[in-house]
Design a binder for these strands. Sequence first.
DNA 1: CCATCTTTGTGCACACGTTCACAAAGACAT
DNA 2: ATGTCTTTGTGAACGTGTGCACAAAGATGG
Lengths: 254, 254
Amino acid sequence: MATGRTHRPATRSRGIPEATVARLPLYLRALTALSERSVPTVSSEELAAAAGVNSAKLRKDFSYLGSYGTRGVGYDVEYLVYQISRELGLTQDWPVVIVGIGNLGAALANYGGFASRGFRVAALIDADPAMAGKPVAGIPVQHTDELEKIIKDNGVSIGVIATPAGAAQPVCDRLVAAGVTSILNFAPTVLSVPDGVDVRKVDLSIELQILAFHEQRKAGEEAAGTESAAAAAVARNDSAEQGPDGDVPAVMPA
Amino acid sequence: MATGRTHRPATRSRGIPEATVARLPLYLRALTALSERSVPTVSSEELAAAAGVNSAKLRKDFSYLGSYGTRGVGYDVEYLVYQISRELGLTQDWPVVIVGIGNLGAALANYGGFASRGFRVAALIDADPAMAGKPVAGIPVQHTDELEKIIKDNGVSIGVIATPAGAAQPVCDRLVAAGVTSILNFAPTVLSVPDGVDVRKVDLSIELQILAFHEQRKAGEEAAGTESAAAAAVARNDSAEQGPDGDVPAVMPA
DNA sequence: CCATCTTTGTGCACACGTTCACAAAGACAT
DNA sequence: ATGTCTTTGTGAACGTGTGCACAAAGATGG
């Protein structure tokens, strides 16, 4: 019910599987490295190794783009760089705004990987009036009041949110209302957006928690005994006391 | 080339699907928010909405952990917080090291989301001797020479790499050799690690490129003329030299 | 021009993930 | 108790992703 705002389209875009799209930047990076070393052609096997994927998967991925290889030879590096760049839309200029210039926002502004491909930081925006005018990465920070004007004047369609969690949804709403249709969210919150708007999230805390899960499994792999003894291999801390439904919680994160 | 070092185990860990593990931190965050508001119980429908997922998916995810709900009522918030925390291994202390204290590394060191759950920043490590002793986020930066000693003295099993791309693999090798078995990689490189070591990567540039792909699709949904004509002409030409060589980005970030 | 060799492109089978739909389980009122 | 109502837990169908294995395509050499 109340599906005015959906969380994910998740639909396959124009025949190219989502999983393939997510790997194209990986291939592009490997190909660019080969291009700089003036390597003329590369086989699926070599390129797959460089990108860290299975060679059959790579060939299938490329087959969605078209038949760009030559049997018996491999792929032309320069040609493939161009085709993938074009498919990803990197042959055009993408102005982006970064909202929330704290530690992370500033780091993003300074990150070379943004500007190096089609992405150009059009503006840095922060809610703190004291930040206004202060240059970060050579770009003066502007106040949130200017957000709508900045988006429209620069034709920005991609926004990066690096605000605290509480500010993320309001900022997101304003970005979308002003015309942004793609959002990269670094704030630890689930964003609600209307249909037609893409959201990708990067969550440092979640990544660590996933690692911790596997780490715990590894630690308890050989210690086969009671479940509380399983974690004893590495950890000295075990406050886990399983009980009835109403027992005491132990952790209090934010 | 066949490598002795695999890139992904990808195997289901102990019955809990990988996709489910990746969502547990999301549920935990939503539950923690409810817990702070002293909400006693929550239905799968409500919690799913808060976490931005389908309710059937949420129930199936929880079913892998056990039967922790009460039919007709829902889930006990506190109990579920505890169960998920335990499953993720957050009831124990995880010392982590951050290697590479540049803009991003410093932002990570200051990031509250790390310390707020079981994760403790045990050390900050950088290759620049000028950084040594300088405090970042209240923690003095140590030189790379100390890496092995730090890992062993603190029993660190999780490492975060925030170095430039070129330094990432050597740093990774040293971390692994010293005993680290889980790595969170922010450097734009594919890392090779031995079996038994987990790597998760966070790549800002890749996320933006994926957004650009979908953005381009949205924009080109109705207008399909101008540039695709030139691209189509190029597409049937298999020479190594393609059109105006300036249109190929051919750039590589750090 | 033919034979041989390399490497692509893909059909197929299988594994994984998602969603629907519903029976079973319990709460609650009468 | 009995019936009704709510919500979980899960079987089953479906969709997506992965990897093997091999025929087809082209290069290369005699």
